[in-house]
């Protein structure tokens, strides 16, 4: 299982990558593996706002469903519609093609609160 060092993580198993003045959000390798084959994703509208620790979407496998929690607050500037049509990408490339939304942070400091790869890895070890 991969945990790239250049991104941040949440305890709800989302990842966050800084990209200029926006951040890219997706779900981790661990999350996609725990869910199994993803069959459905529901993402917010472009232009909408998300609130830290509040649900902003849903991801479903055949027999499990999980809310997506916003790692930070801000405005949704772009949504990855490709994964809505081909949710299997989430299993295949969780950190790449399967990014979910790009958010312009309301408070960039919130990124500092997120976990590093090492911290996240340690957290999921304890979860097990």
């Amino acid at each position: 299982m991969e945990f790239p060092k250049d991104i941040k993580y949440t305890r709800e198993h989302e990842w966050v990558r800084e990209d200029g003045d926006t951040v890219v959000v997706g779900i981790t390798d661990y999350a996609q593996d725990a869910l199994g084959d993803v069959v459905y994703v529901e993402l917010p509208q472009e232009g909408g706002s998300v609130t830290k620790d509040e649900p902003f979407g849903v991801v479903e496998s055949v027999k499990a469903v999980s809310d997506l929690y916003a790692p930070i607050s801000g405005t949704v500037v772009e949504v990855n519609d490709a994964i809505v049509d081909s949710p299997e990408v989430i299993n295949e490339d969780p950190y790449g093609d399967a990014w979910m939304v790009k958010v312009r942070p309301g408070n960039p400091d919130e990124i500092e609160d997120l976990l590093t790869a090492d911290e996240y890895q340690k957290y999921i070890e304890e979860e097990k």
Partner: peptide
């Protein structure tokens, strides 16, 4: 393509 990818994981999806 689709059936192949899900086939190899079909069992795991129920865990």
């Amino acid at each position: 393509g689709c059936s192949k990818s899900s086939r190899c994981k079909a069992s795991r999806s129920e865990e």
